[in-house]
Design a protein around this nucleic acid. Structure first.
Lengths: 235, 235
DNA sequence: CGTCCCTTTGATTTATGTCAAATTCGGTGG
DNA sequence: CCACCGAATTTGACATAAATCAAAGGGACG
């Protein structure tokens, strides 16, 4: 392991999610980093607000563990879950250069969040790989949005849920065979909101999957039994 | 009128869409601008490709007249119209800092496009109001995306089309009374794709609107007869 | 004037929303 | 640790909006 002088980056050096984090590209630098620049492992209980739609964007949030939902509220007060963020991902990258948050982020479970000040990020945009890392993820986020637009209403409930599950497997880098197991931190209602379906439909679709032998469900725990059939399902 | 030395910005000075254009904030400057920086009034016939998904983003495109559709294609080859852009708007602002285009832009009619080189934009980001103008529009674009996610599948075909029409009225700054008239440059099929509906449903919904006395339709020409009823429709 | 394509209209099917009831789950307090 | 309560989830029955299939009408263009 490389010796790091800065006490903050030293901790980053040992972080299990460092390969997903832009702090990684800072570790090699002699840059001075203070607690005002990076705050590590801030713990939030379930249903905490990380940031609020419309509030000034002072920080960038990295999900070290746990998960969050991004909720957008329109003028009529209708709420739409825009996306979920899992461990190793950033919250709301897409509109990074904007002055305010475009949606509200709420934890789905007890989560550890690392907080990067925007001032720090912008000041160090020149550092090799630092901003590039963030921008690359931002592109993924845009693509994701477009996929969501594509997915909504042109796919059946069956397909939508399948796409949703495979997306989790992909994003969480789970085994892409029949041994993928994971927990869905969000409620069925949240899932339904995100997928543009009624909660009852989500429930029925899960049951349908189980009957077909694609997955097993035990409350929030999902185990993939036949991922190839699941992939066929969504095409 | 202010005297401008630069021959390119001088032309911008007389542009009917200058108040929507970031070039406006350049006019007061003594900055040197060449044809490599800004190309004005490039004419494209119907169904021309302005830029391609995945291609390097070398330029930013401003729709001076006409309109375009932004099409996203996924790995399976499914195409989704992400948005339409009308006169006075930019194409694909949301992902401005990305290195490649996130969707393909195609003209819906004969259009005049002004082309800003990205190199020029980034080099002059410090000029007062230049980048701010672009960023503000970018935020609008994100909000629009979120609204689209919200709109898809939770609203009926009736509402979706209503929202679509009111959006055009708003974006084109048409009279917000019962005298709004405009042309829909896109085909019903394009509309259907954008709205996530079957073309037949779009057609039926138009007929329904006409029967209700909300609008009159003559092929691509739309006239709003009762905008308040239309607004009630979408709530 | 005829052909082709886009659009409209009609008839039918189907997926999913809605309403309602049953069941399970999770948390709280005795 | 167990019992109870409220909330979330599942299941069922039914209604309905919109997709699909099919055919006819209308414009644009050669």
């Amino acid at each position: 392991m490389q010796f790091v002088f800065n006490p903050i980056l030293q901790r980053c050096c040992e972080c299990g999610k460092r390969s997903y984090c832009p702090a990684n590209s800072l570790i090699k630098t002699r840059i001075a980093v203070s607690k005002r620049d990076i705050l590590q492992n801030v713990s939030f209980p379930t249903d905490s607000y990380i940031c609020h739609q419309g509030a000034p964007r002072k920080n960038l949030f990295f999900v070290k563990s746990g998960s969050i939902k991004n909720v957008y509220t329109n003028e009529l007060g209708d709420q739409q879950i825009i996306d979920f963020r899992y461990a190793g991902e950033f919250i709301e990258l897409m509109s990074l250069e904007h002055s305010t948050h475009s949606s509200t982020a709420v934890t789905l479970e007890k989560s550890l969040i690392c907080v990067f000040s925007m001032r720090f990020i912008m000041a160090n945009r020149r550092i090799n790989g630092f901003l590039e890392n963030i921008q690359k993820r931002s592109e993924t986020e845009i693509r994701h949005h477009h996929e969501a637009l594509l997915s909504n209403n042109r796919h059946s409930a069956n397909k939508r849920l399948g796409i949703f599950l495979l997306d989790i497997i992909e994003r969480q880098s789970l085994n892409y065979d029949n041994s993928a197991m994971f927990q869905l931190a969000m409620s069925r209602t949240d899932m339904a909101n995100y997928l543009g379906l009624a909660p009852e439909t989500v429930s029925r679709t899960f049951s349908h999957y189980v009957k077909q032998g694609l997955i097993t469900v035990r409350k929030k725990n999902i185990a993939i039994k036949d991922i190839n059939k699941l992939i066929e399902f969504i095409v």
